[in-house]
Each structure stands twice: as C-alpha cells, then as structure tokens.
Design a protein around this nucleic acid. Sequence first.
DNA 1: GGCAACGTGAACTACACTGTTCGAGTTGCT
DNA 2: AGCAACTCGAACAGTGTAGTTCACGTTGCC
Lengths: 216, 216
Amino acid sequence: MAATPRGAGDRSRSAQRPAAQAERRADARRNIRSILDAAQLCLARDADASVADIAKAAGVGRVTLYGHFKTRADLVDAVLTRTMEQSDAALDATDTTGDPCQALTRLVGASWQIVHQFHSVLQAAQRELPPERILAVHDRTLQRVQAIIDRGRRAGAFRDDLPARWLVTTVFSLMHAAVEDTAAGRLDADDAARVISATLLAALTAPGRAVPTPAP
Amino acid sequence: MAATPRGAGDRSRSAQRPAAQAERRADARRNIRSILDAAQLCLARDADASVADIAKAAGVGRVTLYGHFKTRADLVDAVLTRTMEQSDAALDATDTTGDPCQALTRLVGASWQIVHQFHSVLQAAQRELPPERILAVHDRTLQRVQAIIDRGRRAGAFRDDLPARWLVTTVFSLMHAAVEDTAAGRLDADDAARVISATLLAALTAPGRAVPTPAP
DNA sequence: GGCAACGTGAACTACACTGTTCGAGTTGCT
DNA sequence: AGCAACTCGAACAGTGTAGTTCACGTTGCC
C-alpha cells in the first residue's frame, strides 16, 4: 500500500501487500526512507504541508516521490502507519499489567511524547484518509487502552456507569487537548503527563469511590 | 467587520466597527441574513464548504455574497460570531448559580445542543482564522466555565491540584469529543449530555473526595 | 562493463477554488 | 418617477495544488 515501483508492475512481486521494499535497489530504499522521515517531520509541523515541501525537505525530486507513492494520500497513509508502528513499539516496552490506575498512568506517560510530537500527522490523516482507515491504524492502541479499562472495571476501580467506548474516547480526547494547550502556551509540556493522568484517573474512577492520589 | 458595502465607502459610516447593517436597503438586509443562514448550515455540514456552495444555498449570486463579505474568512468570522452570540444567548437563560456541580451539569446540558450542531463551524474557523480570534470570540463562554470552576474550587468541591485553565480545557475537550463520537455512531446523542456531565464531575472532583452522583 | 533500475528538473495538464470586473437588469426608497 | 443601491451571471485573472510526461543523466548490481 506504500510502495509503487516504476519499471516493474505487480508481476515480479508476490503480492502488493507486504510493502515489497526489500527487493528494491539500495538508493531507492534510502530515498524512501528519507521521504518518510521528511514527511513525518513536515506533517508534524504542518498538517497541510504540500508534496513539494516534503520532497524538498527529503532532498529528493518531486517526481521521485511520486515514483514511490502513488498519491499524496498514499504518502500520508504510509507516514501514519509508520508513526503508529513506532508508537506501538514504544508502548510494547511499557508495562501495562498490575494495578489499572498505575498501568494507565504509565501508558499516558509513554504515549504523551509521541502524541505530543506527531499530533498533526494525525490531523493530516484525518483530512485525507477515510475514518475507517484511521480507526484501523489505531486498532492496537485502542485495544491497549480498552484492555486496561476493562480490567479496571472488573477490579471495581473504574466506573461501570458509562459506555466503555466513551472512557476510551476520554483518554484520547484529553491527550490531544493537552497537546493543543501546550502548543498555545496554556500548559507546561513537562507537566502535561502528570496533569493528564490526574484528570483521567479521576474521570474513570467509580462514583462513590475516593479518587486515588498516585504517588509522585 | 462583517459588512462591506459596495457603492459607499466608509465615508457615510461612523466607524467600520458597528456592523453598520441598519442603514442598508431592505433587500440587502434580507440577503445578508440568507447568506448567514446558509453559511451556518453549510459550514455545519461541511467545514470545507466553498463560497459557491454557500451562495447557491442562500439563493444568491456569488458576486452578491462578495458584495457583503470581502473574503471567505470574513464570512466565516461572521458566522462564528453569530453562532457564539446565539450560544451566549441560550446560555444566558441558564442558571449557573448555586451548587457548582449542578451548575456545571446545567451548563453542559444547555451547551450540548449547540456544540453538537455547530461543531464543524468551529472547525472551519480554526482553519481560516487566527487562534487569537477564535479565543476572543469564545471569551464569554470561557469566562462562564471559568467562573463555575473557580466557585467550585473555593467551595472545596472541585480540585485545586491542577491549573484552572486545564480544567476549562477539559470541559471543552470532552464536549467536542462527544460530538465526534456521536457522529461516528459510538455514542447515543440523547445520552451524551449525561455522559459528559458524569465524566466531568468526576474529573473535576477534588482528590480524596467522594465523586458526587447527580440525581437523574 | 553493461544494463536496468532509478533519479531529475522542466514543462505540462487538470482541477478547484478565491476574488474581480463588466454590462445590463431589478428593486427599494423618497 | 427617478435615482441610487442592489443583484445577477458570465467571464476573467490569479493561485496553489496534484499528478504526469519526457529526455537525459546517474547509480547500483551482476
């Protein structure tokens, strides 16, 4: 879905799925990498960055870029996918077992940097890609949050009076709201993870229960 | 800032500020109204609606529209201003005194319909207008929320361990997140106000305190 | 070394949109 | 009635973008 060679059609490739980047020439691989790097950077700075901007930032001709990515949407999709893969990798290294409250706090801490950095990549994707695609790419992250919430509910720590899906939305919503607040200078970026966690723990706590105060 | 006559310059008008719509001819007033109505509707449906779309929806020539609004940004600004005025009017009729928790619940209930309906008008404005302008137009609403939160904090009902500005952000963020969830079919629109309120009350509650369970 | 894959800039098509001009007609106001 | 304000559509200019083609130069790979 990301790579589209010029000379060769789909004939020599087993399928169009597996990105099929291995059998390319070395300079092509290098350029694809540069393009993705540049696109991630440009889109992170400005969700409306043009293909020309990205090509220039990658130190590559626009035509070369189109040689690897059929359309702008393709490129955005590739960048989003890549970003989510990086995110998932970072989150895989995070312990989300044990006490749900602490697990959530750890998850927020680990996610914040990524969300903070690549917030507008998501914005670009939301303007260019169909909602189902956005959802699909977020699947693993969604599952992860959902799992913690489910566990917290079963343990009686998290509330049971609201749709589980809404609690997941709450988590994502506050993360992204925090990004915008820091961008506008209304929130200290170094304090954001703490603020988000504190708000979320309270929001997810079962009514009637005392709100946990996590140790600093 | 909204009205721009054709024949007459600024000469006959006292200032360019006061919208100066009173001294126009009747048909002009009618058209301006139609345009604003149509623009509000179109932008609510699609934040990217073109000037041509809006003019057609208003039953008016494109040139006529440009006769009243110098640029697309001007039009968007006028629509946003108008929407916020309507919103403020609706909120003026809402009792925000008394118990902060109940006041917040009432405010959310009264705001939800408007936010739900005109969510993408705001999106359009965010793409076209400078952030300061968005902030300025939201001033009254912002103040209102801020006032309730301040009162709740003084009363010891709301938490004091997070920046007040962040709590305001939380309120707006969850409202808009709820809109997107309903649009995606993940949340029942009729249930939204309750869900938002319940989440917010918990989020704003002081740590260590029991979360209030508002009467249905 | 040789060949195919790859890169490149310039130029071109195509499109969608904003904003303007013009000439001619219509409507409201006095 | 008469005049200025207003409306209208068509046509135009300008801009920014996506995507393509071509002819030629370069690089990697066997």
